[in-house]
Structure formats: structure tokens, C-alpha cells
Design a protein around this nucleic acid. Structure first.
Lengths: 195, 195, 195, 195
DNA sequence: ACCTACGGGACGTCCCGTTTAT
DNA sequence: ATAAACGGGACGTCCCGTAGGT
């Protein structure tokens, strides 16, 4: 890793929580510079524009969040348990990037204007859904999940419930909504299980 | 309504979709002015600051959204049907203010900084939850809803599912996620019903 | 004086010693901003470029210097005494603008490039020479100064001696060179006097 | 002279007029490079910093100037003639380094900040003064110069007059001021002569 | 209600001085 | 000796939010 790459990563890591907390329009390049101790000329060597920096920061944030939320997931074999584990992990683990879930933040923040960010958020949701759908499908093949279940609907419901309750929890400043979501989702998982 | 009040309302109505779409930091007072045809000096006769304008715009947006989502609700007597109606209405009726659900937008946008807006969003969520909880409780009293049900959990789940799926739908550009949410919520309502 | 004019003067007064000390290329707009407490956007409302600001600052510096050096000059009637007074004043009074004589500084600093500043310095020297020449000529008319004297040569010699010795004094950090110049110039004045 | 020394001298000779014309802050290392056809990395093999290069360039400029101004001086025996010759040479010979007298330029340019250059300029003035004082003193010993004369005052006056008039001449674009200085200085020399 | 004045500050470009690798 | 990489930072434009004056 060259010195420049280190610097670039440093910038991204510093920018990620700033963009995640304050949104694209709500923070300035100067805020990022202050957080890194670097100067403008340096930053613009690595990122052609604020948009590009925001995109890199979002990718980083999303990767960090995914890493933390899926840690230990592969070691579980049973698909229902996998989903249950995933729900628990989401509910218990706070976002490693300050400012909450970058996927939701960016989806909302970039919804109008900033097509690049918007597209990245879209892909993030899509990949998440695909991952859940795959688990459900494989569970059906393995006979762990009932045949009538619609994988896409499960994926949408899980994500919606988790993100939605996260939003409520953040505005309320309590974890209650997330706990409620967990109960409901576990009930859903029980119902679709063949056991 | 005096002439001044008309002007004020005109400004608010113009500002609402702009703030809702682009967020507080993402749009300028000039954007609002352009939408009204008025000039800066005039706006400052009615609103002391951008924050104040944004707060007024949010209150307006929220009121509009609540009106549209609860229209016809009071005419339904059965509490389960009431909730079912509400879900349907949410899923089918787009936000009357451009830019999606102002509650979610503002909750996310104002999460860091802008305490006034943040507080307004909090109250909005709180009121919504209270309304649902009240319906559930009255349903329990009326024997329409099973006793084991936790009103708060129902409220949280409904709102989380609806807002979460709304977010997915917006990033995807499809209504699928919302339809899925509706199916799951109706299933939930069936289960809690005494019938 | 409008608020803007006050601000403009504040900027000029802050910029004058900075440019005078560090030269045009040797200082930055930011240095001036720091000295005023203002921000860039504000400064560029009043000055279109660094060059323009430097020109205004130089004009101000020169005017201050001239004011201080010629104070009390008009009350003296005899032309030789006038010149003597002027020499004394120059030797004893330090530049009111930090950084030494702005005329010499700018003449040297702007000698290559920066034609506007260069021209201002030229005019400054010209005016100074003209003033001295005028005193000499009037002295000749009044019979106080000998007829053979060449006014231009007196002007050139006085200015050269004063500015040259000022330069020496500054590099040495002593006032000796200036005192020596004073002695020589007074001797010169004695010789050209008819008394 | 090794190959490296040749390169070093080439750089210095190229840098001298550039620094002398534009000042330390007013020119860039790239300007020097362009004048030599070399590349940056190469220059930094010979000079550790811009300051160091500027110091070397100044030393070179000063040596060149002194050489040219004192050429033929030693062959003159009479001290008054020596001084007269010196004045003439100064007035008639332009600086061999473009941009005027490096001593004055550097004295002004480095007056604030850049202590190394400042010190070099100081030493340059000091040496010049010492040289003139020595001639005066030896003239007094030899009986060519009157006893009442103050060597230091003569040195200061000569340098001040010459440098001061040089400054005037450069801003005016005429040689008049220098010629006037020459006349005055020769008159001064006549007066101090015992003949 | 309009219009202009005002100070603030973000953005991005350019290039500088220096270091490193070749 | 060349050339690319690196961090620093100056410059100037644009527009923002706000205040006054008309």
C-alpha cells in the first residue's frame, strides 16, 4: 500500500461518519479536511469532487456495516437460524459508522439529486435483499422452510421492519422499537419454519 | 384570512415539497423564493430564519400527510378493520407532498443538528404511534382484538414496516416492497383478531 | 460613510502593513483576512483581485507616510528651513506603516511584474520630487537659495540620500546611516543657502 | 571542476537573475528549472531548500556585482581618485545580474522573514562600507584626504546616495538621478580632498 | 413587497516546495 | 538526472442567509 493509498483510506474513513451523520449537502469538504488534518490540495488529488468523495465514503460505510452485521453468519448452517441470527445481530449491533444506518441515510438523503449516490444505495438494498432471498431459497431446498413462503416477501419484510424500527428508535432515543421488531420477525421466522 | 396570512401560506406550501425533497441543507431560501415568485425581503417578514421556515413547512407537510392517510378512518367502527384500512391507505396513497414521507425524511435529515426539526419529527412519530395504540386498546376493550397483544408492539411494527418498505420502494422505484409489507401486516392483523 | 465603506477602509488599513512588510508575492489574501477577521467572500466584494487590494493598500500607505513626513511643513516660510525641517522629520519619524518606507519597498518589490503598483510607485517618487523642486525654485525666487543650484538635482539628491540611508539603517538595525545622511544633507543645504 | 559542480554553477547562474528580479516569494523553483532545462529532483541534489538556493544565488549575484564595480580599482593609487573612479563605475555600469542591485533588492525583499538572506545582505552592506572606510582612512594617512572627515559618514553617504539614486532611476526609467548623484558625490569628494 | 447591501464560507483549480522512486 | 507522487495552501468565484432601506 503506497503512501497515497494510505492517505486516501484515511480520508475515506474520516469522511464516512461525517457524510453519514450530516448528509451530502449538510457537510463541507472543510469538515472532512478538519477531521483528517489535511488540506484541500491534497484531498482533491484523490477525489475529483465532493460527489466522488461521498460515493467512496458511502461504499466504505456500507462495507463496514455489512461486515459487522454478517459476522459469524456463514458458520450457521440452518437457514432459519441464520435469519434469526441476522435479526439479532442487526438489533444488537450499532452501526460501526456514526450516524446510523448508511443505507437508510443515503437512500433518503440522495433520493433527489445525486444520482450516483442514489444508485449506490439502490445496489446496497438490492444486494441485501438478494442475500436474504438466497438464504430463504436454500432453506426451502433443504426442507427447513415451508414451500409456500415467498422469498422476496420475506426479504422485503425483514429489511423494512429492521430499517423502519431503526428509524423509530433513533427518533425516540430508545431501543424499544427495535426490540419489538425483533419479536415480530422471530415470530415470522417461527411460522415459516417447518419445525 | 388577512392578505399577509395568505402570503405566508403560499410560502409554506411552496417550501414544503422543496424541503421535503432536498432536505434542510440541500436547498436554499432562494429555491423557495423562485417557487413563489416573491423576493427575499418579503420572506423575512414572515419567517425569522431558514430554520423557522423549515419548521413551518414540516408542520404543514406532516399535517397534509396525516390528513390524507387518515381520511375516512373515523367512519370505520371495527378496530381491526380500521387498522387494515389504514394500512391500505398508506400503501396506496402517495405522499401529497413531493419527496416522500416527510416524517421519515425529516427524522433522517434532522437527526444530527437542527434540534427543532428533530423534535417535531419525534412528536410526529409519537402521535402516530399513540393513535395506533389507541385503536388497538379500544379494539381489545371491544373484544375485537386478542388480549395477549401488546399495543405498543403493534404500533411500532406497523409504522416500521410501512416506513421501511416505503424506503425500499423509493430506492427501487417499484411498489413491490409496499405490497409485500401490506400482505405481512394484514396477516398480522388477522392473527391478532378475535374472529 | 456607509457600513461597506467602513469595512473597505478597515481592510485597507489592515492590508497596508502586511503588503509593506512582506511584499506583494510574500503575503496572501488569507493573511489580510486573518488581520481583519473577515472572510474571503467579503473581501472580494470590495476588491476584484489581490492586485487591486495591493494598489489600494499602497495608496493608503503612501498617503499616511506623506502626511506624517510633511506635517508642519507649510508653517515654515523660509525655503531652506523648510527643506531642513523636512530632512529632520524624515530622519526622526519612523514610517507610520510597519515595514519601512512603502515607496522604496514598492518600487523594489513591483519593479518586475505588477505594472499597476510600479506605476503608483513611480508617481509617488515623481510627486515627492516635484514637491522638493518647487520649494527649491520658490527659494530661488525669494532669494534664499543661490541661483546656480539645480532644483532637480537637489530633489534627486535629497531623496536618494534619505532613502538610501534608510535602507542601510534597516539592514544594520542602527540609525547611524540616517544621522550621517542628515549631516551631509544639512551641509548641502548650508552651501546652497544665500545666507 | 567536477560535472556536479558544473551543474550546480549552472543552476546558480540561472537562479541569480530570477531571484534578483522577482524576489524570493515572487518566483518559484520551477521558474529556475525552466531556465536551466533541468528537473526538480536534480536541483534538490544540490540545494536542500529554496532558501539555500536563494542564498547561493544571492552570494553569486553579489560577487558578480562587486567584481564589476571594483574592476580596475586596485590599479589606482590616490584614494580620492579611487573613490571617484568607484562612483563613476557604479553610475555607468549596469548590474551584471538582471533586476538591479542585488544588495538593495535583497535588503528590501528579505527584510521581514528569511533571516539567512537578510544576514547575507547585511554582511554585503557591511563589507562595502568597510571597503570605502578603509580607502578613506588610508587616504587620510597618506595626506590625500582632510583629517576632519569621518570615514563612516563618507561610506554611508556614498552608498546611500548611489543606492538611493539607483532606486529613483529604476522607477523613472531614466539615468538622470544617477547622474545627479554622481555630481553631488564628486563635489563631496572634491571638498574632502586636501588638494 | 422589492431590491440592494453585507458578511460568510464552500468549492474546486492551480501550482508550489519537497520527497521518493527509478 | 528524470519523473512521478505527495501534501500544502493561495486564489477567486459563486451563492448563501440575513439586514436594511425604499
Amino acid at each position: 500500500m503506497t503512501k497515497g493509498e494510505v492517505t486516501m483510506q484515511k480520508i475515506i474513513a474520516a469522511a464516512a461518519p461525517i457524510f453519514n451523520q450530516r448528509g451530502f449537502a449538510g457537510c463541507s469538504i472543510q469538515d472532512v479536511l478538519d477531521a483528517t488534518g489535511l488540506e484541500k490540495g491534497c484531498l482533491y488529488r484523490y477525489f475529483a469532487s465532493k460527489e466522488e468523495l461521498a460515493a467512496a465514503a458511502f461504499k466504505y460505510s456500507l462495507a463496514e456495516v455489512v461486515k459487522v452485521r454478517t459476522e459469524g453468519l456463514e458458520e450457521i448452517e440452518n437457514s432459519v437460524e441464520k435469519l434469526r441470527y441476522f435479526v439479532g445481530r442487526f438489533v444488537e449491533t450499532p452501526s460501526p459508522i456514526k450516524g446510523g444506518c448508511p443505507l437508510m441515510n443515503t437512500a433518503i438523503d440522495a433520493d433527489d439529486g445525486n444520482p450516483e449516490l442514489r444508485e449506490l444505495a439502490r445496489k446496497g438494498v438490492e444486494a441485501w435483499k438478494a442475500r436474504i432471498e438466497k438464504i430463504v431459497k436454500s432453506g426451502m431446498e433443504r426442507g427447513e422452510i415451508r414451500k409456500e413462503v415467498k422469498p422476496r416477501r420475506i426479504a422485503n419484510s425483514m429489511i423494512a421492519m429492521l430499517e423502519g424500527s431503526l428509524m423509530i428508535s433513533r427518533t425516540e432515543g430508545t431501543r424499544k422499537a427495535m426490540k419489538d421488531a425483533q419479536v415480530m420477525l422471530e415470530r415470522m421466522l417461527d411460522e415459516m419454519s417447518t419445525r
